[in-house]
Amino acid sequence: MALNTPQITPTKKITVRAIGEELPRGDYQRCPQCDMLFSLPEINSHQSAYCPRCQAKIRDGRDWSLTRLAAMAFTMLLLMPFAWGEPLLHIWLLGIRIDANVMQGIWQMTKQGDAITGSMVFFCVIGAPLILVTSIAYLWFGNRLGMNLRPVLLMLERLKEWVMLDIYLVGIGVASIKVQDYAHIQAGVGLFSFVALVILTTVTLSHLNVEELWERFYPQRPATRRDEKLRVCLGCHFTGYPDQRGRCPRCHIPLRLRRRHSLQKCWAALLASIVLLLPANLLPISIIYLNGGRQEDTILSGIMSLASSNIAVAGIVFIASILVPFTKVIVMFTLLLSIHFKCQQGLRTRILLLRMVTWIGRWSMLDLFVISLTMSLINRDQILAFTMGPAAFYFGAAVILTILAVEWLDSRLLWDAHESGNARFDD
């Protein structure tokens, strides 16, 4: 018995066209964080690309023209004298008006014999932002004059995390709450300039795509075929072959399989920071003279006294001054041990922890910024005066060393310790 099946006739004509040209192939790229070699397709503007294995951002879609970056830099340069030299806060102490600005706080630190601690604050609040705007201006002028731009481009990517104007702005709020127990506070004209400078700096850093600047100024022929001998440069993120001198053909720094002496430098910085954190938390970090009496505060006791007036601000200072430094030390110690013992479990967790400490590390400088600003506000000789204690130097040095330890660690070593050939990683 035959089955009668109805015929289905399409209502619209289906047209099949042959592909007349070869589909576009992607360029081969190595991930600078996990060293995976993959094919990167062509990316349009405002599109980002991520590593298929570790999800690290390979290409950032946010990109401004150099002219727009230069305009932002010149605007920031105009704001800087007002943000640093004009009063941020006014207080009335014992019937006398006192003005506080950024430069005055750094000068008070240096004047009291601790120039190293003052230079830490100076670099993060004044030096690094000033280098940022002058570097962008150098790129703008240098591109037109045919100057060598490689050193500036190499420095810009590392400079971003040292620009800490946003953290200093939080420190202004913390210092205001600490001082309000002794005097009446009012915002100064410099505060508005400083807030504007923070906003412009944040926007500029978020749109400063150094890798795209490398592509514009020093374009290189990408690798179009897969080759395990391809290496990625950690300076400019170019994937290719080393030249005859073993250097990256684009930025001219040595092109090595792994960062040289990464573990040794990381261990040295980490152990030194552990040693410095002990006096930083045991010795007094601030000293207040009130009517001839002397009151010393460690980091913890200062947080407890701050909690009596504002528990939320005390929580912020606790996280930045105690929780973050010790968390960074514990995480980095764990990561280094996992590399030495070739741990194969929990790779995803370790990668996330490394990215976390990379982002939060700079916030530990908050305590030094609060001390710097408070020193310029309260300084009335023996009637009422505020000065920093010996722990300030140890704390600042420990924070900087932990930042350097994270920067010096080559994250690809975590993958080397893991089993080879993993296309995915999980716990």
Rank of each mutant, 00 (worst) to 15 (best):
A2R: 11
L153F: 01
T387N: 05
L278Q: 11
R424I: 14
A49S: 11
F82G: 06
L200Y: 15
L77N: 10
G190P: 04
N291L: 15
M164P: 01
V121Q: 09
R150V: 03
I131R: 00
M365P: 00
G95R: 03
G95W: 12
W84Q: 08
L145I: 10
D27H: 12
A183M: 04
T298N: 08
R355S: 12
K57D: 05
W162Q: 01
R231F: 06
R53I: 10
E212H: 14
M147V: 03
R158A: 13
Q108W: 03
V317T: 01
W267T: 11
A71Q: 02
S262I: 02
G20Q: 11
L347M: 10
E22W: 14
M388S: 06
L257R: 03
P279Q: 08
L156F: 14
S273I: 06
L89A: 05
L66N: 12
A100E: 08
W92M: 03
L384A: 02
P81C: 06
A392G: 07
W359Y: 11
I339N: 13
N310P: 13
Y168G: 13
L130F: 08
L234C: 15
A137E: 03
I199A: 14
G127R: 00
R221L: 08
A73T: 13
S305W: 01
S309C: 07
V275W: 05
L165N: 13
A18M: 11
L149S: 14
Y28S: 15
I177L: 15
L353Y: 09
S45W: 05
F318S: 10
C34N: 00
R225S: 10
N281A: 06
S273W: 03
D427H: 15
A49Y: 10
G188V: 07
W162M: 01
R59F: 07
L409D: 01
I303T: 12
I19A: 11
G85Q: 13
T201G: 04
N143L: 14
V324A: 08
S262M: 03
K13H: 15
R294E: 02
C54N: 00
Q220H: 07
G188P: 02
M147E: 01
I371K: 00
L401N: 08
A269P: 02
M36R: 15
A398S: 09
G26L: 12
P151S: 05
L149E: 04
P279H: 02
L153I: 09
G315R: 14
D410E: 02
D243W: 02
G190Y: 03
H261E: 06
W363Q: 06
L277S: 12
R355K: 15
V170W: 14
A115Y: 04
Q104M: 13
S65C: 07
D381M: 05
P279N: 07
Y218M: 03
G127C: 04
C31A: 00
C251N: 00
Q382L: 11
L79E: 04
K57C: 12
L366K: 01
Y28W: 11
W162K: 01
